[in-house]
Design a protein around this nucleic acid. Sequence first.
DNA 1: TCGCTAACTTGATTCACATCATGGTGATAC
DNA 2: GTATCACCATGATGTGAATCAAGTTAGCGA
Lengths: 251, 251
Amino acid sequence: MTIHLSQSEDPAFKACSHDYQVNCGNCRLNSICLPLALENDDIQQLDDIIQRSKPLQKNQHLYREGDNFQSVFAVRSGTLKAYKTTDDGREQVTGFYFPGEILGMDGISNNAHASSAKSLETAAICEIPFTALEKLSTLMPNLQRHFFQLMSREITEDQQLITLLSKNSADERVAALMLSISGRNARRKLSATQFRLPMSRVDIGNYLGLTVETVSRVFSRMQKMEVLRVDNKEIEILDQQGLKNMANLGR
Amino acid sequence: MTIHLSQSEDPAFKACSHDYQVNCGNCRLNSICLPLALENDDIQQLDDIIQRSKPLQKNQHLYREGDNFQSVFAVRSGTLKAYKTTDDGREQVTGFYFPGEILGMDGISNNAHASSAKSLETAAICEIPFTALEKLSTLMPNLQRHFFQLMSREITEDQQLITLLSKNSADERVAALMLSISGRNARRKLSATQFRLPMSRVDIGNYLGLTVETVSRVFSRMQKMEVLRVDNKEIEILDQQGLKNMANLGR
DNA sequence: TCGCTAACTTGATTCACATCATGGTGATAC
DNA sequence: GTATCACCATGATGTGAATCAAGTTAGCGA
């Protein structure tokens, strides 16, 4: 029996959670989602265009594939998954988005969202209207650069996933995902070794190009090898180095 | 025995090929690589920052993973492949770039190229220094938007590939690539049904997460089914609809 | 023209993961 | 309490593509 805090209850996010009075200046995540080089009044200007709407309930959509593209979004609390629906109706999860991360940028090219985004738990979201962001970017070179960088990062991360899917075994894929989540937790000053997975085994498998059964078996194997302790969605990394070896990515 | 023109000999690219006097205003590819909404003198300004260096020989690198990031590049003639080297020394091809297409944007996020790019045949390249492009973008909102869109497109294309790798069979993957190349040829007013593959079977396999042997077998199968005529690198699409069915992507 | 090498094809065998089948567990509703 | 349902674990079996192993062909330099 384990007790766990959902991310939205996490004390580290008090100022950033479901609090409507939050702004970029006082948000604990701003070191992650904002360019460091912004001046205070620049932050104020950015803050002015950002809309903070009511929290998203679990399983609620933030946007759907094909929706008219208006905004990109920053996750303030909770976790979202982005996914595409293939023509034969199957689902491909293209990413998980944790607090401080930006999603929706794939909608820019066609003025329509190229994927759907749904929350895996109650989530608070900052909406950033894109035309306003574009205007602001022409005035604030640092902001423009920041968004170029954010999009570039999304590209390199997608390329990482492409490599993972194309070259790595089931064990390696799952290990890599656990390390990724661990690292993103660390960036938010949360435990890198103990966390609760916000997504189901189905979602993990879908993201990694594996079936549920395989994901389940990999977790069992890792547990037997004493690399991970797995209690349903609760994960503890017992052997960080072992996990890295298993991921076979060197990093 | 088939006679084929390499892309650089293609009459459609007379003005855009290895001709050093070429500029954006007279380049036949500008409808592909430039924002349509640019005024003539805007094009001139863009033209002024673009550098046209001497042609790249086959197998020569345009940049390597880890190189300091300075510029993005537009392909004027020839074809390039982008690839990452995994830690255990294997190669993952992340994309092929045809005339009119832009590459190198994955280097923005870390100021270092995240992948290597090498030419598959003699190629002419336009180099676009990124800091100059950034400056120009603050002055020309259309240009800024264009680059946001280009990067967004790269993201959606990577997501397509992710889905392909994760959900589709060998046949479907190869069919999808053939359709992609066919479509990109059509965009450049070349034949959508007959073309020469600039890349080797190894590269195709590597890109699609398959071995050479599998790629070869798929081509043989397609030939037997009279969907494709395959003569080494020379491809003829005999049954467009059959190929689409085989790709199983609906589109 | 010959010889060499890289690129490609094809067949036989193996293997990692999918698929199919079943049972367990925990949460929510009644 | 127990019925129901979503989610997860695990075993048995099947299969598509990898691997291993020969060829064949095309391109290229001497």
